[in-house]
């Protein structure tokens, strides 16, 4: 898929949570083709401490309105600076990068999409893709508390949503792998994006139930293009770049102890 460097325009800015900003970007020409699970590298202006671009997953692509959505968690100085953007500002992106999640493997397949924290972001785009291409996505989303659940209405508009919160304020209390859904239903495969401990425990569940499972990693990156070899993950094929060979990996290709 061809990659571009482009200045996109900030069309809307939303603050769904004190720690998050949702930027909806647009362009005068149609946005390039991308696949769910791919990411962008954003240039952060006005932050002297932020030298490198910031890799951000594609939250959603609204073709009808020519919008690319980035759901960004404010972690360090760079992402805090991105949260200061205003409608009409421009943002320089290198995109689309990496390989996304798996394309539909068979009609009617039941795919469990498990997300936690800001890791829910790419699952919205992927869930919509799966539904439009004849698969049956189901979301299982985890958060600390009810107020930390993001884009719930958007997820619900795509597919059934099951929730766990650590404090029990919404859905079932506990972690995603403790949800009763996992005892009741069998899935053809699982895709996960979230904190590493969560992905490891979902990978364990997948192995135990013999369910194919892919995870989306977020190792620290520099170039995003497979040139600098900084973001490597150990795999059965040796060290590979998360940016170029990932960010989505089959758990059988990783060397995680699951």
């Amino acid at each position: 898929m061809k990659k571009y460097v482009k200045d996109l325009t900030v069309k809307t800015v939303e603050y769904p949570h004190e720690l998050y900003v949702l930027l909806k970007l647009t362009d005068t020409e149609p946005l390039p083709e991308s696949f769910p699970g791919q990411f962008v590298e954003v240039k952060v202006e006005g932050s002297p401490q932020t030298f490198l671009r910031r890799p951000i997953s594609i939250n959603y692509v609204d073709r009808e309105n020519n919008e690319l959505w980035l759901l960004i968690k404010k972690v360090g100085e760079g992402t805090h600076q991105l949260a200061q953007l205003k409608v009409g500002d421009t943002l320089n992106l290198v995109f689309p990068l990496g390989n996304g999640f798996s394309p539909v493997r068979k009609q009617g397949e039941k795919v469990l999409l498990v997300g936690g924290g800001v890791g829910v972001a790419p699952l919205l785009d992927y869930g919509k893709y799966l539904k439009e291409h004849g698969a049956q996505p189901v979301f299982l989303l985890g958060a600390r508390s009810k107020s930390d659940l993001l884009e719930q209405n958007l997820f619900k508009a795509v597919a059934p949503v099951y929730v766990t919160t650590e404090d029990g304020s919404e859905g079932e209390k506990g972690f995603v792998t403790q949800h009763t859904l996992l005892n009741k239903e069998k899935f053809d495969r699982i895709s996960v994006c979230g904190p590493k401990p969560m992905m490891v425990s979902v990978a364990r569940y997948a192995k135990a139930t013999n369910t194919p499972c892919e995870v989306s990693l977020e190792n620290m990156m520099a170039c995003g293009l497979g040139a600098c070899l900084c973001c490597v993950e150990k795999t059965v094929k040796g060290n590979v770049c998360v940016c170029k060979d990932g960010p989505v990996f089959d758990i059988n290709d990783l060397t995680w102890e699951v």
């Binding site: 002297p48 401490q49 932020t50 030298f51 490198l52 190792n219 620290m220 990156m221 520099a222 600098c228 070899l229 900084c230 973001c231 490597v232 993950e233 150990k234 040796g238 060290n239």
Partner: peptide, 17 residues
């Protein structure tokens, strides 16, 4: 195979690898 991860850290106006 190169060195283990992490292999990169950003610094003011630059980076280390």
């Amino acid at each position: 195979e190169g060195n283990d991860y992490p292999r990169m850290v950003e610094t003011a106006s630059g980076m280390l690898n």
